[in-house]
């Protein structure tokens, strides 16, 4: 790839929730800003821009990662999944999303998309994750509303439900 120069916009394309997307980005544009500002996918939130809060967590090539610590140009050609891609159909929620709703695992909902993206990847990778492992994984996210108790409950319930019906 040639050198992309500062101050100029370059075409970046990748797959977003299974659909090809493209937009223009300066080399310095963060993936979080690209998703939200250029592509209009505002479900991914920004809470700290230094990698601590986890609100911006998306899946890059299947693994959870901070969109605020990724440049848009780094995502060229990648497979990106965001919270907008979690629900199986309009009007239906995924098992994980449904579990969050049932257990009141969100209040303001600002941290939620990032947490869902982490849990979604983790539960797929480790369907038998223990409570301790889930809690540890969750520690990569800050939630200021819930005190984590209902989030843990929702995560455990989703794990159990997915174990029973892995294709749900």
């Amino acid at each position: 790839m040639p050198r992309l120069s500062a101050g100029q916009r370059h075409r970046v394309s990748f797959s977003l929730n299974g659909r090809p997307v493209a937009g223009e980005a300066e080399p310095r544009l963060l993936l979080s800003d690209f998703l939200r500002g250029v592509l209009g996918a505002t479900g991914t939130h920004v809470g700290c821009e230094h990698g601590v809060c986890g609100a911006c967590t998306v899946q890059i090539d299947g693994v959870p990662a901070r969109a605020c610590l990724t440049l848009a140009v780094q995502a060229e050609g990648a497979d990106i999944r965001t919270v907008e891609g979690l629900a199986p159909a309009p009007g239906r929620l995924s098992v994980l999303q449904e579990s969050f709703r049932e257990h009141h695992a969100l209040q303001c909902g600002f941290c939620t998309p990032g947490i869902l993206m982490s849990l979604d990847a983790f539960l797929r990778q480790r369907p038998d994750a223990s409570e301790a492992e889930l809690r540890y994984m969750l520690s990569g996210h800050l939630c200021r509303c819930t005190g984590y108790v209902p989030i843990m409950r929702a995560a455990l319930a989703a794990r159990d439900r997915l174990r029973e019906e892995p294709n749900a």
Partner: peptide, 21 residues
């Protein structure tokens, strides 16, 4: 009663309308 919240369907899909959205 602990009804499910009407707020949640949108928030869980990333369709919340926060100021920056």
């Amino acid at each position: 009663r602990s009804l499910p919240r009407v707020e949640d369907a949108a928030l869980l899909r990333g369709a919340g309308r926060y100021i920056d959205d």
